[in-house]
Design a binder for these strands. Structure first.
Lengths: 122, 122
DNA sequence: GACGCTATATGCACAGTGGATATAGTAGTG
DNA sequence: CACTACTATATCCACTGTGCATATAGCGTC
């Protein structure tokens, strides 16, 4: 994987696709294709990860240690199993990185509002 | 400039540097070099726009109509004038785009928090 | 078996970025 | 004056992240 000694903050800012993938894996382990669907669902269809972006992002964040691929016996038993699928789980480091990114976004949003950029409606 | 008929939302998401530039121009007209300093100041030195990014971003957002270059007689009179400087002002469209981006970031942050990514400290 | 959906992977092109380099005006110091 | 450091803009090169298209193939249903 990536550098074990790096702090979560040193990973920022996260690529947009990466952050969405981490959010999709926050509550449960998923395989790639399911991540695409989950991201679309959470964003009311507004964020549609392309397959190219998704699978290459996963390769990257596995290497960086944000997520880990599940072994065969770690897979969710309930799920009807498709041998083609590869399941991923958020690591503690990945969670820490996602939290750091959330904090960074909060600060950015605070700056934007302090600049007078108050959106009309929610 | 760019397409006059496009809505602010169709411009999203904004490149990170662009959003910082718009924030730096929210309260007063500035020249390029001053924008670099202002962004660094507002972010406590955490965001340091490189010259390459800054000047190309400005060229792009002038073309897109987010900002407009000031004529000689529009320049701030108080400022000691340096002939090399080129001053820029946020346009109403640029402000609308920045507000739309602010709204987008707010929604993203809400999603992140709903995913359980609550940062430890502010 | 034909079709559409699921699932992963890769090739190609392009936008945005950082760092380096180029050019030159400005200001202060000796 | 010469020298240096800072201000100011612009462009070049390399790299990352992204979308779209393509490739391969298993799965489900009619």
């Amino acid at each position: 994987m990536g550098n074990r000694t790096s702090s979560p903050e040193s990973e920022l800012p996260l690529p947009a696709a990466t952050f969405h993938i981490l959010m999709a894996l926050a509550d449960e382990d998923r395989h790639g294709y399911a991540i695409i669907q989950e991201v679309a669902s959470r964003t009311n269809g507004e964020v549609r990860l392309s397959a190219g972006t998704l699978y290459r992002s996963i390769q990257r964040i596995v290497d960086q240690g944000y997520v880990a691929e599940l072994t065969m016996r770690e897979r969710p038993a309930a799920d009807e199993d498709d041998a083609r699928r590869r399941y991923y789980r958020l690591t503690p480091f990945g969670r820490a990185v996602a939290e750091a990114e959330t904090r960074r976004l909060g600060e950015l949003l605070r700056l934007a509002r302090a600049s007078g950029f108050i959106p009309k409606k929610a």
